[in-house]
Structures are given as structure tokens and as C-alpha cells.
């Protein structure tokens, strides 16, 4: 059996927001029977242009159903601009994590949301749209999609890419092309990291950059889950923070601390930053 979290099992057993919204403003459909999972997402906006109602229908495994259900809970009340920023990692995090081989379920959620938003804005039926060059013919995955999951999830191996978007999981003929995408993103990541490391900063500039990064990259993510974070102190490369709201006492707080807060600060401020919770 898969090592599903209690939250995954809860959303699988008691899926929220099942069905189709009446007279929807946006409809997004992704996946197929042959692929093994498919999701139809519909939403309605209120007068303030916020998502007032959102429903899903999913064909798929336990984690596909849970990811869809989680997504609807997450985006309810958001503006489309806010909803657009939801990544597959956010969906997985909302569920307390997904098994690596099941991350593609969270990617399907994000894709359906994008398709529904695009449908609202342009009237396009998003089902058949494949932008850019198709790399994996077995599952119809484009270079753009592969690059995106590699970037957003910091993937480094073809196996991970398969887990996240299925590309490479059929005949395996596209494995070299997937490796090329990984290599290209890796080169970019390294040069960006080198640039960040090379940038001379005063201590005050560094604190400002930490605050900016937290405000831009970290807090919105935590606030979506009803949590928050404050900067307490900076001592050299040690950044001390305090979790607030739902994050305080959350059982995945340590994961969030390292995998989200520290990872983002290392990416945008300096590669040697260590983040600690004020309690520890």
C-alpha cells in the first residue's frame, strides 16, 4: 500500500466539492481514461471576482481524488490571480505530502485549474491544447510541462520527472530528451546560485532581502493554509523565524521550515543560509 497521509485518506474518503458547478464561468478538463486519471474542474466567480464555487469530478486513484478535493478547498475564495499562483507543491503540501510516485496527481490538479482559468479568459476548450513540442508521446507531455515540473519541484532525475508528470513512464523513448531538459534547468539553476552568492551585500541589505523573500515567496504560501511566519532575528547566516497561526504546532512544520523557508531563502538570498525555529 502507498504511504498516504491521514489527510490524503480523509480527502479520498470524504471528497469535498464533488460535481459540476451550475453555469460555470470556467471549465478545465485534463487527463484521459487511457492515462489512468482525469479531472474536470468547474468554478464560478462572485461579484468581487473571487471563486465563490468550485467543483470537481475525478477518475483516478486515491491520491488523484484527494488532490482534486484539496485543490477545490484551497482555491475557494481566491481571485484568479491568486489561484494562478497555486503550484502542485502547494497541493501536495496541503495534503501533508504525497508519495513521490504520486506527485503527478498534484500536477494534474494544477493543470486543470490553469485550464479552467484559461477557459474563463479566452473561452478556449483546454482539453486538447498542447503547447510547444510534445516530448513524451505515450502520455502527451510537452517540453514546457516537463521544464515546469523540473523547475517548480527542483527535480534532478528522469525518474522524478516520471513521477511528477508521467513523461518517460511508457516506452521510455523520450528519456534522453527529458535528461536534456533537466540538464538545461540545472545549468541555469547553478548560474543563478553563483550570481546570488557573488552578490556583495551589507548586513542591512541582507535582512531586507530576507524580509522581501519571505513576503513574496513564503508568507502567501503559508497564509493559504491559515498559517504565517515572522522574522525574529538574523545572526550571520542563521535566520531565526517564528511560525504563527496554523503553522504553529503543525506536524509538518519542520518539513516546511527546511523544504520551503530555508529552500526559498537559499535560492533568493544566499546558498549558505540555515533557518531555525525560534523554539529550537
Amino acid at each position: 500500500m502507498w504511504d498516504y497521509t491521514d489527510r490524503v485518506m480523509d480527502h479520498f474518503r470524504n471528497p469535498r466539492n464533488v460535481g459540476v458547478v451550475k453555469d460555470p464561468d470556467g471549465v478545465g478538463e485534463v487527463g484521459s481514461l487511457a492515462c489512468g486519471d482525469a479531472l474536470k474542474l468547474t468554478f464560478k466567480l462572485d461579484k468581487d471576482a473571487r471563486i465563490s464555487d468550485v467543483k470537481f469530478q475525478t477518475f483516478g486513484c486515491a491520491s488523484a481524488i484527494a488532490s482534486s478535493s484539496a485543490l477545490t478547498e484551497m482555491v475557494k475564495g481566491m481571485t484568479l490571480e491568486e489561484a494562478e499562483k497555486v503550484t502542485n507543491r502547494d497541493i501536495a503540501k496541503f495534503l501533508g505530502g504525497l508519495p513521490e510516485q504520486k506527485m503527478h496527481c498534484s500536477v494534474m490538479g494544477r493543470e486543470a485549474l490553469e485550464a479552467a482559468i484559461r477557459n474563463y479568459r479566452t473561452g478556449e476548450k483546454s482539453k486538447q491544447i498542447l503547447e510547444g513540442k510534445v516530448i513524451c508521446n505515450c502520455f502527451g507531455v510537452t517540453e514546457e510541462e516537463i521544464e515546469r515540473v523540473v523547475r517548480e519541484n527542483s527535480l534532478t532525475t528522469v525518474e522524478q520527472v516520471t513521477n511528477y508528470c508521467k513523461a518517460g513512464g511508457g516506452c521510455g523513448g523520450c528519456v534522453p530528451s527529458i535528461q536534456e531538459v533537466i540538464d538545461r534547468v540545472e545549468v541555469e539553476r547553478k548560474s543563478a546560485g553563483a550570481a546570488a552568492a557573488a552578490r556583495p551585500m551589507t548586513f542591512l541589505q541582507k535582512i531586507h532581502l530576507i524580509e522581501d523573500t519571505m513576503a513574496r515567496e513564503i508568507r502567501p504560501m503559508l497564509q493559504r493554509d491559515g498559517g504565517d511566519i515572522d522574522l525574529v532575528n538574523v545572526e550571520g547566516n542563521k535566520v531565526i523565524v517564528a511560525f504563527r497561526g496554523m503553522c504553529a504546532g503543525c506536524n509538518v512544520a519542520q518539513f516546511t521550515l527546511k523544504e520551503v523557508v530555508e529552500a526559498k531563502l537559499r535560492e533568493f538570498v544566499s546558498g549558505d543560509i540555515v533557518v531555525e525555529d525560534v523554539k529550537s
Binding site: V18, G19, L39, Q57, I65
Partner: peptide, 14 residues
């Protein structure tokens, strides 16, 4: 089937 977008309409939850 109530969850599935492929089910016959009468079995779907709309």
C-alpha cells in the same frame, strides 16, 4: 462513479 467525469450522467453527482 458519482465522482467520475466519464460515468453515465445519471450516475454522476452533478
Amino acid at each position: 462513479r458519482a465522482l467520475s467525469p466519464f460515468s453515465p450522467p445519471e450516475e454522476q453527482q452533478i
